[in-house]
Write a protein that binds this DNA or RNA. Structure first.
Lengths: 169, 169
DNA sequence: TTGTTTGTTCAGTACGCACTGAATGAATTG
DNA sequence: CAATTCATTCAGTGCGTACTGAACAAACAA
Protein backbone atom coordinates (compact mmCIF):
# COMPACT_ATOMS: atom_id res chain seq x y z
CA UNK A 1 0.00 0.00 0.00
CA UNK A 2 0.99 3.56 -0.79
CA UNK A 3 2.27 6.15 1.69
CA UNK A 4 -0.33 8.70 0.64
CA UNK A 5 -3.05 6.11 1.02
CA UNK A 6 -1.78 5.04 4.42
CA UNK A 7 -1.72 8.63 5.58
CA UNK A 8 -5.24 9.22 4.29
CA UNK A 9 -6.55 6.14 6.06
CA UNK A 10 -4.86 7.13 9.29
CA UNK A 11 -6.24 10.65 9.20
CA UNK A 12 -9.72 9.38 8.43
CA UNK A 13 -9.48 7.25 11.54
CA UNK A 14 -8.42 10.17 13.67
CA UNK A 15 -11.11 12.48 12.32
CA UNK A 16 -13.87 9.94 12.72
CA UNK A 17 -12.79 9.50 16.31
CA UNK A 18 -12.46 13.21 17.07
CA UNK A 19 -15.78 14.07 15.46
CA UNK A 20 -17.53 11.33 17.39
CA UNK A 21 -18.71 9.65 14.21
CA UNK A 22 -17.30 6.25 15.08
CA UNK A 23 -14.22 4.51 16.42
CA UNK A 24 -10.76 5.03 15.02
CA UNK A 25 -10.64 1.63 13.37
CA UNK A 26 -14.07 2.07 11.83
CA UNK A 27 -12.87 5.39 10.45
CA UNK A 28 -9.78 3.74 9.01
CA UNK A 29 -11.96 1.11 7.40
CA UNK A 30 -14.11 3.74 5.79
CA UNK A 31 -10.99 5.44 4.46
CA UNK A 32 -9.67 2.15 3.17
CA UNK A 33 -12.85 1.37 1.26
CA UNK A 34 -13.14 4.91 -0.06
CA UNK A 35 -9.90 4.24 -1.88
CA UNK A 36 -10.54 0.65 -2.88
CA UNK A 37 -13.90 -0.33 -4.32
CA UNK A 38 -13.10 -4.01 -4.52
CA UNK A 39 -14.54 -6.39 -1.89
CA UNK A 40 -12.20 -7.60 0.83
CA UNK A 41 -12.37 -10.51 3.23
CA UNK A 42 -12.01 -10.04 6.98
CA UNK A 43 -8.54 -11.56 7.01
CA UNK A 44 -7.58 -9.27 4.19
CA UNK A 45 -8.84 -6.20 6.01
CA UNK A 46 -7.15 -7.26 9.23
CA UNK A 47 -3.85 -7.68 7.44
CA UNK A 48 -3.99 -4.49 5.40
CA UNK A 49 -4.99 -2.36 8.36
CA UNK A 50 -2.76 -4.31 10.76
CA UNK A 51 -5.49 -4.95 13.30
CA UNK A 52 -6.79 -8.08 14.96
CA UNK A 53 -9.33 -10.19 13.17
CA UNK A 54 -11.75 -9.64 16.03
CA UNK A 55 -11.61 -5.91 15.55
CA UNK A 56 -12.05 -6.28 11.81
CA UNK A 57 -15.13 -8.41 12.34
CA UNK A 58 -16.71 -6.15 14.94
CA UNK A 59 -16.10 -2.90 13.10
CA UNK A 60 -17.08 -4.26 9.69
CA UNK A 61 -20.38 -5.45 11.08
CA UNK A 62 -20.85 -2.11 12.79
CA UNK A 63 -20.26 -0.20 9.58
CA UNK A 64 -22.58 -2.59 7.79
CA UNK A 65 -25.35 -1.81 10.27
CA UNK A 66 -24.71 1.89 9.76
CA UNK A 67 -25.21 1.25 6.05
CA UNK A 68 -21.71 2.40 5.17
CA UNK A 69 -20.36 -1.02 4.25
CA UNK A 70 -22.06 -3.84 2.44
CA UNK A 71 -21.51 -7.52 2.94
CA UNK A 72 -21.23 -9.59 -0.19
CA UNK A 73 -20.41 -13.18 -0.98
CA UNK A 74 -18.98 -15.27 -3.74
CA UNK A 75 -19.81 -18.70 -5.23
CA UNK A 76 -17.98 -21.53 -3.57
CA UNK A 77 -16.42 -19.27 -0.98
CA UNK A 78 -17.51 -19.43 2.62
CA UNK A 79 -15.86 -16.14 3.52
CA UNK A 80 -17.65 -12.84 4.05
CA UNK A 81 -16.55 -9.97 1.88
CA UNK A 82 -17.12 -6.32 2.55
CA UNK A 83 -17.06 -3.25 0.41
CA UNK A 84 -18.43 0.27 0.43
CA UNK A 85 -22.22 0.36 0.21
CA UNK A 86 -23.91 1.73 -2.86
CA UNK A 87 -25.11 4.83 -0.99
CA UNK A 88 -22.97 5.42 2.06
CA UNK A 89 -23.88 9.12 2.25
CA UNK A 90 -27.54 8.23 2.51
CA UNK A 91 -26.80 6.56 5.80
CA UNK A 92 -24.42 9.20 7.04
CA UNK A 93 -27.36 11.55 6.65
CA UNK A 94 -29.49 9.17 8.67
CA UNK A 95 -27.02 9.06 11.54
CA UNK A 96 -26.94 12.84 11.87
CA UNK A 97 -30.70 13.00 11.43
CA UNK A 98 -31.34 10.46 14.15
CA UNK A 99 -29.16 12.30 16.62
CA UNK A 100 -30.98 15.53 15.96
CA UNK A 101 -34.31 13.78 16.28
CA UNK A 102 -33.35 12.61 19.75
CA UNK A 103 -32.58 16.11 20.94
CA UNK A 104 -35.79 17.40 19.43
CA UNK A 105 -37.76 14.75 21.26
CA UNK A 106 -36.06 15.56 24.54
CA UNK A 107 -36.61 19.30 24.23
CA UNK A 108 -40.19 18.81 23.18
CA UNK A 109 -40.91 16.42 25.98
CA UNK A 110 -39.30 18.58 28.62
CA UNK A 111 -41.18 21.65 27.49
CA UNK A 112 -44.47 19.88 27.98
CA UNK A 113 -43.49 18.39 31.34
CA UNK A 114 -42.22 21.58 32.91
CA UNK A 115 -44.36 22.83 35.84
CA UNK A 116 -46.44 25.95 35.33
CA UNK A 117 -44.20 28.24 37.32
CA UNK A 118 -41.41 27.61 34.81
CA UNK A 119 -43.06 28.83 31.66
CA UNK A 120 -40.24 31.29 31.04
CA UNK A 121 -38.04 28.24 30.65
CA UNK A 122 -40.70 26.59 28.51
CA UNK A 123 -40.72 29.51 26.12
CA UNK A 124 -36.95 29.33 25.88
CA UNK A 125 -37.14 25.64 25.08
CA UNK A 126 -39.74 26.22 22.42
CA UNK A 127 -37.33 28.33 20.44
CA UNK A 128 -34.85 25.47 20.59
CA UNK A 129 -37.55 23.08 19.56
CA UNK A 130 -38.18 25.25 16.54
CA UNK A 131 -34.49 25.23 15.73
CA UNK A 132 -34.17 21.47 15.77
CA UNK A 133 -37.40 20.99 13.84
CA UNK A 134 -36.07 23.41 11.25
CA UNK A 135 -32.82 21.50 11.05
CA UNK A 136 -34.59 18.21 10.52
CA UNK A 137 -36.66 19.57 7.65
CA UNK A 138 -33.60 21.10 6.09
CA UNK A 139 -31.62 17.89 6.32
CA UNK A 140 -34.34 15.95 4.60
CA UNK A 141 -34.49 18.45 1.79
CA UNK A 142 -30.72 18.42 1.60
CA UNK A 143 -30.55 14.64 1.30
CA UNK A 144 -33.13 14.73 -1.43
CA UNK A 145 -31.21 17.36 -3.36
CA UNK A 146 -28.05 15.27 -3.13
CA UNK A 147 -29.92 12.20 -4.32
CA UNK A 148 -31.14 14.07 -7.37
CA UNK A 149 -27.76 15.55 -8.10
CA UNK A 150 -26.23 12.10 -7.87
CA UNK A 151 -28.84 10.61 -10.15
CA UNK A 152 -27.92 13.17 -12.80
CA UNK A 153 -24.26 12.11 -12.81
CA UNK A 154 -24.58 8.47 -11.83
CA UNK A 155 -23.91 7.29 -15.40
CA UNK A 156 -20.24 8.01 -14.74
CA UNK A 157 -19.78 5.26 -12.22
CA UNK A 158 -22.40 2.78 -13.37
CA UNK A 159 -21.72 -0.92 -13.67
CA UNK A 160 -19.75 -1.08 -10.45
CA UNK A 161 -22.18 -3.14 -8.42
CA UNK A 162 -22.17 -6.88 -9.11
CA UNK A 163 -24.07 -8.92 -6.52
CA UNK A 164 -21.42 -11.59 -6.50
CA UNK A 165 -17.72 -11.10 -6.95
CA UNK A 166 -15.40 -12.27 -9.62
CA UNK A 167 -11.79 -11.90 -8.58
CA UNK A 168 -9.42 -10.49 -6.00
CA UNK A 169 -5.81 -9.38 -6.16
CA UNK B 1 -34.17 22.70 41.10
CA UNK B 2 -36.98 20.72 39.53
CA UNK B 3 -36.94 16.98 38.78
CA UNK B 4 -37.91 17.52 35.16
CA UNK B 5 -35.16 20.10 34.79
CA UNK B 6 -32.61 17.85 36.41
CA UNK B 7 -33.55 15.03 34.08
CA UNK B 8 -33.34 17.30 31.07
CA UNK B 9 -29.90 18.55 32.07
CA UNK B 10 -28.68 15.02 32.67
CA UNK B 11 -29.91 13.79 29.31
CA UNK B 12 -28.39 16.75 27.52
CA UNK B 13 -25.08 15.80 29.07
CA UNK B 14 -25.38 12.21 27.93
CA UNK B 15 -26.42 13.13 24.39
CA UNK B 16 -23.68 15.70 23.97
CA UNK B 17 -21.20 13.06 25.03
CA UNK B 18 -22.62 10.29 22.84
CA UNK B 19 -22.87 12.53 19.79
CA UNK B 20 -19.30 13.68 20.24
CA UNK B 21 -20.36 17.30 20.48
CA UNK B 22 -18.60 17.95 23.76
CA UNK B 23 -18.00 16.53 27.21
CA UNK B 24 -20.78 15.43 29.51
CA UNK B 25 -20.39 18.37 31.84
CA UNK B 26 -20.32 20.85 28.97
CA UNK B 27 -23.54 19.26 27.73
CA UNK B 28 -25.11 19.58 31.15
CA UNK B 29 -24.09 23.22 31.25
CA UNK B 30 -25.73 23.86 27.91
CA UNK B 31 -28.89 22.20 29.19
CA UNK B 32 -28.77 24.25 32.35
CA UNK B 33 -28.49 27.52 30.47
CA UNK B 34 -31.14 26.53 27.96
CA UNK B 35 -33.55 26.48 30.87
CA UNK B 36 -32.23 29.48 32.74
CA UNK B 37 -31.42 32.67 30.86
CA UNK B 38 -30.08 34.49 33.87
CA UNK B 39 -26.29 34.84 34.30
CA UNK B 40 -24.61 32.58 36.84
CA UNK B 41 -21.28 32.74 38.59
CA UNK B 42 -18.81 29.86 38.51
CA UNK B 43 -19.49 28.97 42.13
CA UNK B 44 -23.17 29.02 41.40
CA UNK B 45 -22.80 26.72 38.41
CA UNK B 46 -20.53 24.39 40.33
CA UNK B 47 -23.05 24.12 43.13
CA UNK B 48 -26.16 23.71 40.97
CA UNK B 49 -24.53 21.07 38.78
CA UNK B 50 -22.69 19.50 41.72
CA UNK B 51 -19.30 19.59 40.04
CA UNK B 52 -15.93 20.95 41.08
CA UNK B 53 -15.19 24.59 40.54
CA UNK B 54 -12.25 23.63 38.33
CA UNK B 55 -14.55 21.75 36.00
CA UNK B 56 -17.03 24.60 35.96
CA UNK B 57 -14.27 27.02 35.01
CA UNK B 58 -12.77 24.83 32.31
CA UNK B 59 -16.03 23.87 30.67
CA UNK B 60 -17.53 27.34 30.86
CA UNK B 61 -14.50 28.76 29.12
CA UNK B 62 -14.67 25.98 26.56
CA UNK B 63 -18.31 26.71 25.80
CA UNK B 64 -17.50 30.39 25.63
CA UNK B 65 -14.85 29.70 23.00
CA UNK B 66 -17.35 27.62 21.08
CA UNK B 67 -19.63 30.64 21.14
CA UNK B 68 -22.36 28.82 23.04
CA UNK B 69 -21.89 30.69 26.32
CA UNK B 70 -21.14 34.32 26.90
CA UNK B 71 -19.14 35.80 29.72
CA UNK B 72 -20.59 38.88 31.32
CA UNK B 73 -19.75 41.02 34.30
CA UNK B 74 -21.39 43.29 36.78
CA UNK B 75 -20.43 46.61 38.41
CA UNK B 76 -18.50 46.25 41.60
CA UNK B 77 -18.33 42.46 41.26
CA UNK B 78 -15.08 40.76 40.46
CA UNK B 79 -16.72 37.46 39.60
CA UNK B 80 -17.26 36.13 36.09
CA UNK B 81 -20.80 35.39 35.07
CA UNK B 82 -21.88 33.18 32.25
CA UNK B 83 -25.06 32.82 30.32
CA UNK B 84 -26.23 31.49 26.98
CA UNK B 85 -24.84 33.47 24.07
CA UNK B 86 -27.16 35.54 21.92
CA UNK B 87 -26.77 33.18 18.96
CA UNK B 88 -25.63 29.76 20.16
CA UNK B 89 -26.94 27.99 17.04
CA UNK B 90 -24.76 30.15 14.86
CA UNK B 91 -21.74 28.58 16.48
CA UNK B 92 -23.12 25.07 16.54
CA UNK B 93 -23.34 25.46 12.78
CA UNK B 94 -19.74 26.55 12.71
CA UNK B 95 -18.55 23.52 14.62
CA UNK B 96 -20.22 21.12 12.22
CA UNK B 97 -19.03 23.19 9.28
CA UNK B 98 -15.45 23.17 10.44
CA UNK B 99 -15.42 19.41 10.85
CA UNK B 100 -16.76 18.93 7.37
CA UNK B 101 -14.23 21.36 6.02
CA UNK B 102 -11.43 19.28 7.47
CA UNK B 103 -12.62 16.13 5.75
CA UNK B 104 -13.04 17.99 2.50
CA UNK B 105 -9.49 19.29 2.72
CA UNK B 106 -8.14 15.82 3.43
CA UNK B 107 -10.01 14.18 0.59
CA UNK B 108 -9.06 16.94 -1.79
CA UNK B 109 -5.43 16.82 -0.79
CA UNK B 110 -5.20 13.06 -1.03
CA UNK B 111 -6.80 13.00 -4.45
CA UNK B 112 -4.13 15.34 -5.78
CA UNK B 113 -1.26 13.49 -4.11
CA UNK B 114 -2.23 10.01 -5.25
CA UNK B 115 0.26 8.47 -7.73
CA UNK B 116 -0.80 8.08 -11.34
CA UNK B 117 -1.39 4.35 -11.16
CA UNK B 118 -4.15 4.95 -8.61
CA UNK B 119 -6.45 7.15 -10.64
CA UNK B 120 -9.34 4.77 -10.10
CA UNK B 121 -9.03 5.64 -6.43
CA UNK B 122 -8.69 9.30 -7.34
CA UNK B 123 -11.96 9.22 -9.24
CA UNK B 124 -13.64 7.59 -6.28
CA UNK B 125 -12.32 10.28 -3.99
CA UNK B 126 -13.52 13.02 -6.30
CA UNK B 127 -17.11 11.90 -5.84
CA UNK B 128 -16.61 12.17 -2.09
CA UNK B 129 -15.04 15.56 -2.57
CA UNK B 130 -18.15 16.62 -4.43
CA UNK B 131 -20.30 15.31 -1.63
CA UNK B 132 -18.53 17.26 1.09
CA UNK B 133 -18.39 20.41 -1.02
CA UNK B 134 -22.11 20.07 -1.59
CA UNK B 135 -22.70 19.67 2.12
CA UNK B 136 -20.69 22.76 2.95
CA UNK B 137 -22.66 24.90 0.52
CA UNK B 138 -25.90 23.53 1.84
CA UNK B 139 -24.97 24.21 5.42
CA UNK B 140 -24.15 27.80 4.67
CA UNK B 141 -27.46 28.30 2.93
CA UNK B 142 -29.19 26.56 5.81
CA UNK B 143 -27.59 28.81 8.42
CA UNK B 144 -28.62 31.85 6.41
CA UNK B 145 -32.20 30.64 6.17
CA UNK B 146 -32.33 30.11 9.91
CA UNK B 147 -30.92 33.55 10.53
CA UNK B 148 -33.63 35.10 8.40
CA UNK B 149 -36.35 33.06 9.98
CA UNK B 150 -35.11 34.09 13.41
CA UNK B 151 -34.99 37.74 12.43
CA UNK B 152 -38.65 37.56 11.46
CA UNK B 153 -39.69 36.33 14.92
CA UNK B 154 -37.00 37.94 17.06
CA UNK B 155 -39.40 40.54 18.42
CA UNK B 156 -40.81 37.87 20.70
CA UNK B 157 -37.69 37.57 22.81
CA UNK B 158 -36.31 41.08 22.51
CA UNK B 159 -34.99 42.99 25.48
CA UNK B 160 -33.25 39.99 26.99
CA UNK B 161 -29.68 41.12 26.51
CA UNK B 162 -28.39 43.66 29.01
CA UNK B 163 -24.62 44.13 28.91
CA UNK B 164 -24.37 44.27 32.66
CA UNK B 165 -26.50 42.42 35.15
CA UNK B 166 -28.90 43.64 37.74
CA UNK B 167 -29.75 40.96 40.23
CA UNK B 168 -29.51 37.26 41.06
CA UNK B 169 -31.58 34.91 43.16
C1' DT C 1 -15.78 -39.21 12.48
C1' DT C 2 -11.77 -35.79 12.72
C1' DG C 3 -9.53 -31.80 10.93
C1' DT C 4 -9.87 -27.04 8.57
C1' DT C 5 -11.41 -22.80 7.75
C1' DT C 6 -14.12 -19.35 8.59
C1' DG C 7 -16.81 -15.68 11.88
C1' DT C 8 -18.13 -14.34 16.52
C1' DT C 9 -17.90 -13.82 21.48
C1' DC C 10 -15.71 -12.71 25.72
C1' DA C 11 -12.47 -11.76 29.44
C1' DG C 12 -8.57 -9.00 30.04
C1' DT C 13 -5.85 -4.98 29.11
C1' DA C 14 -4.26 -0.66 27.87
C1' DC C 15 -5.12 3.90 26.80
C1' DG C 16 -7.15 8.31 26.69
C1' DC C 17 -9.69 11.74 28.70
C1' DA C 18 -12.67 14.18 31.76
C1' DC C 19 -13.04 15.31 36.38
C1' DT C 20 -11.19 16.48 41.09
C1' DG C 21 -8.42 18.74 44.91
C1' DA C 22 -4.82 21.43 45.90
C1' DA C 23 -1.65 24.85 44.64
C1' DT C 24 -0.97 29.14 42.23
C1' DG C 25 -1.95 33.66 40.61
C1' DA C 26 -4.32 37.98 40.45
C1' DA C 27 -7.19 41.51 42.22
C1' DT C 28 -9.12 43.86 46.14
C1' DT C 29 -9.87 45.26 50.94
C1' DG C 30 -8.68 46.57 55.62
C1' DC D 1 1.44 44.67 54.83
C1' DA D 2 -1.65 40.41 55.55
C1' DA D 3 -6.16 38.43 54.55
C1' DT D 4 -9.92 37.46 51.35
C1' DT D 5 -12.06 36.27 47.25
C1' DC D 6 -12.13 35.09 42.99
C1' DA D 7 -10.23 32.30 38.46
C1' DT D 8 -6.92 29.23 36.55
C1' DT D 9 -3.54 25.60 36.30
C1' DC D 10 -1.77 21.09 37.11
C1' DA D 11 -0.69 16.53 38.84
C1' DG D 12 -3.26 12.57 40.05
C1' DT D 13 -7.14 9.42 39.68
C1' DG D 14 -10.96 6.92 37.99
C1' DC D 15 -13.83 5.40 34.38
C1' DG D 16 -15.27 4.14 30.05
C1' DT D 17 -14.26 2.03 25.99
C1' DA D 18 -11.89 0.20 22.02
C1' DC D 19 -8.76 -3.22 20.93
C1' DT D 20 -6.48 -7.90 21.47
C1' DG D 21 -5.87 -13.02 21.98
C1' DA D 22 -7.93 -17.04 22.88
C1' DA D 23 -11.81 -19.84 23.17
C1' DC D 24 -15.92 -21.07 20.89
C1' DA D 25 -19.29 -22.08 17.18
C1' DA D 26 -20.59 -23.22 12.69
C1' DA D 27 -19.93 -24.88 8.18
C1' DC D 28 -17.57 -27.75 5.34
C1' DA D 29 -14.14 -31.40 3.53
C1' DA D 30 -11.89 -35.71 3.70
Amino acid sequence: MNDVARDFIERMGLMAERDGMFSRIAGRMLGFFMLDGKPHSLDDIAEQLQISKASASTNARFLEQMGVLERCSSFGDRRDFYRLGDSPWEDLFDVARHRMENVLRLVDNTASLLPDEMDIARKRLQVWREFYAFMLDEMDAQAERWRQRLARTSAVEAGSLPAAISERD
